[in-house]
Design a protein around this nucleic acid. Structure first.
Lengths: 134, 134
DNA sequence: TAAGGTACTTACATGAAAGTTAGTGCCCAA
DNA sequence: TTGGGCACTAACTTTCATGTAAGTACCTTA
């Protein structure tokens, strides 16, 4: 499963990128499955979990610490959604105490490559944006 | 035991862009302004409006049509938030019938360059993702 | 005269997302 | 033996984002 780094590096550059052909009419259809997927990956905690996992496999408790403020319920729920979407893999080891590792799938990795620059941008611009409010 | 970000970078060549230095500890702080900004730009309609405007200046009624399913209230609200965040500019012409144009600021344009590949990805992968659900 | 387009605002309603609290079973260290 | 860490699940509640419906003000076309 080869992921082309060049491709993502290029698309992440701050240059005008074209929308896919299917959106050439400029209309974003309402019932479209992409709306659902977009909702999952842009959910409050979804982004943070994907980001955290972009740095490598991590345990439940690691993720709890990293996504500061997340509740156990939301962590479980977010992970389940991402797993169902085929973006995250769960690996449980039958040891005591339990050890469960979460990591990105190829597809999840692909996605995180697009999310990282976005979050980095938000992080860098957040202070300016919030400060400039009337 | 613990996998450092540096180690991971070194071992996996096609790595997505690194996180900003402030996040080097892998923790996404809870009270951080970037959380707010992230919430704005990843909101259900925020993404679509920014995307639509990435193709150039547009009128209120254009945006309504493009972000299929949006209500007038949500359009107004989303535009106001994006304007306050300095991502969108509003230009009203005192003509009858009223004509108001919305466009991206430099910062908004910068952001849209990061959002476009993300939405394109969601659009391309949505069918596979939804179909593969248990 | 009525209907429709333009760009909104306001009040109220709902529903999904998120938070809260508690409980599970197992083990280990103090 | 009390407490904590681990990885969850379930039930209940609250908050907030979003939806619905209607009103505003002006002008044009039928």
């Amino acid at each position: 499963m080869k992921v082309s780094a060049q491709e993502f590096t290029a698309s992440a550059a701050p240059l005008p990128a074209a929308l896919p052909a299917a959106l050439a009419d400029g209309v974003f259809p309402a019932g479209c499955p992409s709306r659902t997927v977009l909702d999952h990956i842009t959910s409050k905690w979804g982004v943070l979990i994907l980001l955290a996992l972009s740095e490598g496999e991590q345990r439940w408790s690691d993720l709890r610490r990293r996504a500061e403020g997340i509740s156990e319920k939301m962590l479980a729920q977010t992970l389940k959604t991402l797993e169902r979407d085929g973006l995250v893999t769960r690996t449980a080891q039958p040891v005591i105490p339990p050890r469960v590792d979460y990591s990105l799938t190829g597809r999840g990795y692909e996605l995180s490559a697009l999310l990282v620059p976005l979050v980095a941008w938000a992080f860098e611009n957040a202070d300016d944006i919030i400060k400039g409010q009337p």
